[in-house]
Design a protein around this nucleic acid. Structure first.
Lengths: 134, 134
DNA sequence: TGAGTATATGAGAATATGATCATATAGAAA
DNA sequence: TTTCTATATGATCATATTCTCATATACTCA
């Protein structure tokens, strides 16, 4: 069981998914643009996380929303605290959150993504104007 | 980095090694009988745990003593607490500890193991007389 | 020195994993 | 109904992982 949990966590793409789900629920097409992964690849990673019990899925019409499993969370409190702490210190994970927040701020919606992927990518990848003024 | 840590933990044999090292320092031949792994296989697992920074090794003559890395421990407190908590609830890990304690109680030493492996195995595998009176 | 012991490592086989392409399914919209 | 869209999955390839056997290294003891 412990082994299965760690196997599920032993992949950067899956860790990036979990990091995003710490900040909300998302459907596959949203995660796709946040992470730059192909639909098929992403779907498989979500499948593994679901099989291992770390995340759950809720169908909403043709969309599927993924979220952290409350059951798993309550049974693995220390692990989640550890993950959140470590992820906050890592550029890769922070960048993903930034993209996700740009997406939310811009009031973009799930259905726009496919039609205007180029434009959506440009919007979510824009630098924070004041942050990191290098 | 996080990914590397989880990769190192994503194997039952390595988790069993870590579980034992939570309770002391041991050399390869001791871990060998506690876990029933071949010398070569065990050595490789120890190598991976060492490469990932989770454990360290100290040479003592022809023996090598392995132990949890204090540096890693201090940088991953929550993870270690999580591991210890989960391991205490798992039969497999508890059994390993029992074998290790039988070994210590019997005042067996590292050098006896090779000569009398059969006998050592018998001693460390004996049931606790009062515990689990099934 | 030479023999013996503890551990590490190269090479190979078996299996597992991750990514991709094409296709299937299921729901939405027309 | 047909068409379109979101997600899942079969098949495949490339790579990674685990284990084993044989051998190498490094230390000890005579």
């Amino acid at each position: 069981m412990l082994e299965q949990t760690f196997k599920a966590l032993a992949d950067e793409n899956r860790l990036r998914i979990i990091n995003l789900l710490f900040h909300g629920e998302f459907c596959v097409c949203e995660l796709e643009v946040f992470l730059g992964l192909s639909q098929s690849n992403l779907s498989r990673h979500l499948g593994k996380l679901k099989t291992s019990g770390i995340i759950t899925a809720e169908k909403d019409g043709q969309w599927v929303h993924y979220m952290i499993s409350e059951v798993f969370k309550s049974e693995n409190v220390l692990l989640f605290e550890y993950l959140q702490k470590k992820m906050r210190k890592d550029q890769v994970f922070e960048k993903d959150i930034e993209r996700m927040q740009n997406y939310k701020k811009s009031k973009l919606s799930c259905s726009v993504i496919r039609e205007n992927k180029e434009q959506v990518l440009e919007i979510i990848n824009q630098e924070e104007s004041h942050a990191k003024g290098k």
